[in-house]
């Protein structure tokens, strides 16, 4: 087998799941932050986040499978599986380690704290919220975002977001990586990323024009690591954003406007995280108003997807299909 075929095979293997590209890109960002900043991402923090997030992910998966099994006897009752193996596999069916890992990488890139417990807690809270706070089978909050917002609200100055620690060359490299990952990934969420960036940039440039500031100021403000991770890896999360394109753009602009306002009015550092957490409830509302086809991570049918909480008797409504 030639190098070429091997490369193509590898590409195909990665391309199978949009999250593979995201994990690769976030690992790249993590390494950039680790190596170029004195106050950057730390492997220990990543490990702590992984411990917290994976624990919640395992517990959540088992819980969801248990509920499913109870409700639907035809699908096989894992709790009474004849062999330990069948039970074990059954319990962990649909264990989404990739999504949890993406959450952990985002967390450790953005969050800083004076104790490893904060990353652990953020990972745990983010994933737990993914399982518990849901509407019509979709989680409301982006896990990394709600994890960071919760621990920084609880922790006060003990946990903080460090948006300005990137420097110019690393930030451009990071933007390139983020963009590449998004284009490559089949998540088809470039619209919301660009929508948010365009909306946020418009707010910054508009304010500069109003204040009579030189354009170097908004350009400088756009070179923020937090903005980058947020736009490319957080607000693009297909599971917590609206399904239809128009709704996504509306959502992106709303978050951009709210973030800008929080930053100007209340001088909150990392305002966009708070904006996304605060407006998360918009997503199901927009889904209701502008329904569209639900996103699935892998294109192949019949595979296990994100374990979904059973809808408690609500029958799935017929949905308008939009591509």
């Amino acid at each position: 087998m030639g190098v070429r075929t091997k490369t193509i095979k590898l590409f195909k293997a990665i391309h199978q799941d949009a999250r593979h590209w995201q994990i690769l890109a976030l690992s790249g960002l993590f390494s950039i932050s680790l190596t170029t900043s004195d106050f950057g991402a730390r492997p220990k923090a990543l490990l702590a986040a992984i411990v917290g997030a994976m624990f919640a992910q395992v517990a959540g998966t088992v819980w969801v499978n248990a509920r499913k099994a109870k409700r639907d006897p035809d699908s096989g009752n894992y709790w009474r599986a004849s062999t330990l193996q069948a039970g074990f596999i059954g319990w962990f069916a649909g264990f989404q380690w990739k999504s949890a890992l993406i959450t952990c990488l985002s967390l450790s890139i953005l969050l800083r704290a004076n104790s490893l417990w904060f990353w652990l807690a953020a990972g745990f809270i983010g994933i737990t919220a993914k399982f518990l706070i849901r509407y019509r089978g979709k989680h409301i909050f982006n896990p990394a975002c709600i994890g960071i917002v919760t621990v920084s609200l609880i922790g006060g100055s003990a946990a903080w977001v460090s948006p300005g620690q990137w420097g110019q060359a690393p930030i451009f490299a990071a933007f390139a990586i983020g963009f590449a990952a998004l284009v490559l990934s089949s998540a088809k969420r470039l619209d919301i990323a660009l929508g948010f960036l365009a909306g946020f940039a418009a707010m910054l440039f508009g304010r500069a024009l109003y204040l009579g500031d030189p354009m170097t100021i908004p350009i400088h403000q756009l070179q923020s690591g937090a903005l980058l991770v947020f736009a490319f890896f957080m607000i693009t999360d297909p599971r917590s954003t609206p399904d239809s394109r128009i709704a996504r753009l509306v959502f992106a602009f709303a978050v951009a406007a709210f973030a800008a306002w929080l930053g100007w009015e209340y001088h909150i550092r990392g305002a966009m995280l708070y904006a996304l957490a605060g407006l998360a409830i918009l997503s199901p509302i927009l889904d209701h108003l502008l329904p569209a086809k639900r996103f699935e991570w892998t294109s192949t049918k019949g595979k296990h997807h994100e374990p979904e909480t059973p809808r408690g008797g609500v029958r799935p409504r017929p949905q308008l299909v939009r591509s």
Partner: peptide
């Protein structure tokens, strides 16, 4: 000078 700890700039890179 703070009670909590180090102060950093949020819109510029802080370097040791």
């Amino acid at each position: 000078i703070t009670r909590q700890g180090r102060v950093e700039t949020t819109n510029y890179k802080t370097v040791k």
